[in-house]
Design a protein around this nucleic acid. Sequence first.
RNA 1: GGUUCCGUAGCUCAGCUGGAUAGAGCAACAGCCUUCUAAGCUGUGGGUCCCAGGUUCGAAUCCUGGCGGAAUCACCA
Length: 599
Amino acid sequence: MHERVESIITKAVTDIIRKEFEEEARPGSVVLQKTREEFEGDFTLVVFPFVKLSKKSPEQTAEIIGKKLLENIEVVKSYNVIKGFLNISLYTQYWLDFLSAAISDDGYGFSEECEAKPVVVEFSSPNTNKPLHLGHIRNNLLGYSIAKILEASGKKVYKVNLVNDRGIHICKSMVAWKLFGNGITPEKSGKKGDKLVGDYYVKFENELKEQANKLMIEKFMSEEDARKVSPLMQQAQTMLVKWENKDADTLAIWSLMNGWVYEGFDETYKRLGVSFDKIYKESETYLHGKSIVEEGVEKGVFYKKDDGSIWVDLQDEGLDEKLLLRADGTSVYITQDIGTADIRYKEAQPAEMIYVVGNEQNYHFNVLKKVLKKLNKPYADNIFHLSYGMVELPQGKMKSREGTVVDADDLMDEMHKTAKEITEILGKTSDFSDDEKEKLYETIGLGALKYFILKVDPKKNMMFNPVESIDFNGNTGPFIQYTHARICSILRKAGENRLRSIFLRIAPDKANEKEIKLLKLIYSFPAVLKEAAEEYSPALIANYVYELCKDFNQFYHDYSVLNETDIAISDFRLLLSKLTAQTVKNSMSLLGIEVPERM
RNA sequence: GGUUCCGUAGCUCAGCUGGAUAGAGCAACAGCCUUCUAAGCUGUGGGUCCCAGGUUCGAAUCCUGGCGGAAUCACCA
């Protein structure tokens, strides 16, 4: 692919300023933007930043730069100046050449892998005591999409999952299952493993509440104290110590129950369409974390309190003192994160370690980075917390106590069902086989869900209203999928033979405005991808592909591809449609969304 | 209380590395299917970009201070 015209123009402008005004433009001050619809032109240069250098009026400055660009750059056809804005037009042939070049490239917009050092993207990170819910869905979709985006922009990416498979919360469901489960299993109960274990976690919390209430009334204790001394909590704590001491019975129950959960998770992940290159388990990394913490004590960067607990003092960094290891020697959350980071770095020597974790843990990652820095770890600065916003429901945050948690599996079922209903009403799939229908409903339902979540800026909290949030019209996944299916329909009707033998021979003045607009938008895809990778934002891709589809649908409405009698124009439109479909498909693949060929 | 993030149309969101008259979708209303898929297209109405200052040729965008909301400041993860 030839050099992007924007960078050619940008460089030329810098040269012109140097030659004509004998001044150096500040780096980054020469910025080309798309010309707004209302004006004539392809790119616009804002010249206000250069009037101090030129010592001329904005109009004169723009004139001088425009004139020189026209003289020096072959593909520049004309320019016009409005106030301080220099609008530059290229020859239509430039866009047609671009179409010829891009059409043969199935992976249009994607870069070849070119960077030596990999990037590790951690996402999902579930606990093995509860099933996945809507919050995890946002996490998984973001993580997977960002991995795809980074890959498409030339990075080697390792997708990793860190499963939180140990700790007091895990012991809670184990205790409850042992006490109240009567040896029930997923097979016997007919439940998914993660759901079954989740039930016993809830059971524990309910029973604990009852015990605590009783203690509060009988012994006038505070709720906090009552929970702490209740028999159930004591059992959970004992179990944790046993677990860390590798008690055989405890480990047996633990691996049994975790095994059930993994089976359940695998099902959910598979359906969501996410996957990992490696799964880390906290149970396998926390010991390494412990040893690093002890190493820190020896080095004198951490300190031991009288009770034996280990702390780090981050007060000089504007933070607090932070516990790293409990007095009984058991580890806390951050202990394993220290270990995991170290293991990960040693294994892959990554240039960057990205953690896709909710913004509720901003403080935690701040601490983690500072702790690693105190330890002089080389990767302390390579850690990037991709902090995303919470998913809120109309009634506020999801709360398991109030039963407002939106279960991931249930939600996907719901989406499938809605897709089915709408598709049946529209009645375009009568000749589909049952398998094809089911596949289609799943594609559309999940497409709607994924797009809905990914189109929002990751950093922002988002609202999810289960009854009305997911639409199938307008700025939605199905709209984009539909556009793709529409194009495929044209390509099918054109036929393999014609598509194979086609070539671009349209005269530049025969291409209309909508077509060129579409072509320009497709041209900007690589730039959008680059920005999405830099910003870690699938939302940019989502908004881009929506705009692309909207423009295509306008074109589709106004002009006919196959009924056009001028064969050169028809061929051009066919190629344009094909490239649009390719770009839509590629964009959607970055979001982990499939696009059907018929719907 | 400290820290961080957020506040744009009735609702959900774009736009935010300062640039021309602030955009979409949904919802409401009015149109468009003998022609490539109407999950589409076109139009109408809808805004003190939370408020007040400041910087600038130019501010939704940057700075300061308010107001409102969220998260966090655990020997939970």
